[in-house]
Amino acid sequence: MIEPETTALILLAAGKSARFGLSDKLTETFLGQPLGMHVVTALDAVPFARRVVVRDGVQLDYAARGYHEVHNSRPEQGLSLSLKMGVEAARGPGIEAVLIALADMPRVTAAQIHRLFEAATGPDSVVASSDGVHPKPPALFGANRFDALETLEGDAGARDLILAGRHVVTHPDELIDVDTEEELDKLMAKFGQVRGRLES
């Protein structure tokens, strides 16, 4: 098992949100806080050795929540660039793994993160979450995978590594990834909320 105390959390919060419309999806209010802060709150109690966020222009103060902020000024180059920047910032003495999480997945739980740690066996580990059909983040990568993460290109990110790794199934609702206004509307409706829209 890999321990949280030797793991760096990398939160990916950079992206053009081109499918979302006029607003920045991470600043949309959901259950009383910005969408992009839910995973931060959920993972507050997990004792990571280091917390890194890769962001672009999003107006959320991750530094105030204990994150080292890395600015990605070229999010249009794809998810792989953010991954590379995050791993570069996370590397350091005693770091044996990185846990990759996405800021637009507001229902992630600490319980699922601990299940990923329990499934990891060492420095070659790749352990991803799954809804029972598709593996996806959050995902844990042992130190022997750092070089591979830093050489990825394009918008597929670590998809091939994740597909070949171990998968820990959890309820699909925990792994909702908000990419469009319709997806956010559907999620909010589950909690009796209705979102106001910006006028075009």
Rank of each mutant, 00 (worst) to 15 (best):
L163Q: 15
A110P: 07
R166F: 05
L149I: 09
A90Q: 03
P75Q: 02
A120W: 00
K84F: 04
I100D: 04
V126M: 04
G94L: 06
L140S: 04
E153S: 14
E76Y: 13
A156P: 03
L161N: 03
E69Y: 01
T151V: 13
S82C: 04
A90W: 01
A103E: 06
R145Y: 07
Q112A: 11
G86C: 12
V127P: 00
A111I: 12
P137N: 12
V168R: 01
K136C: 11
M105V: 10
A148P: 03
A90M: 06
P137W: 03
V169P: 02
A119C: 09
L79H: 04
R115Q: 13
Q112K: 13
K136T: 15
G122Y: 11
H114C: 14
D155K: 01
Y67S: 00
F141C: 07
L152Y: 06
A103T: 07
A119P: 03
A148R: 15
E118S: 12
H134T: 13
S73Y: 15
D124L: 13
P138H: 10
L79W: 05
L102R: 11
E118Q: 11
A97N: 03
V98H: 07
G94C: 02
H167N: 04
V98A: 12
A158I: 03
G94E: 05
S125V: 01
D160E: 14
P123Y: 13
R74C: 05
A156F: 14
D104S: 14
G66A: 06
R166Y: 07
L116D: 00
I162E: 06
F117P: 00
L99E: 00
I162P: 02
E88H: 10
I113D: 00
H167C: 04
T109I: 07
V168S: 02
A158K: 02
V70M: 08
P137D: 05
G92W: 08
A110M: 08
G66L: 05
E88A: 15
T109Q: 04
V87Y: 02
E69P: 00
T109P: 01
G154V: 06
A164H: 13
E88M: 12
I100T: 05
G122D: 10
E76G: 10
L163C: 15
G78D: 09
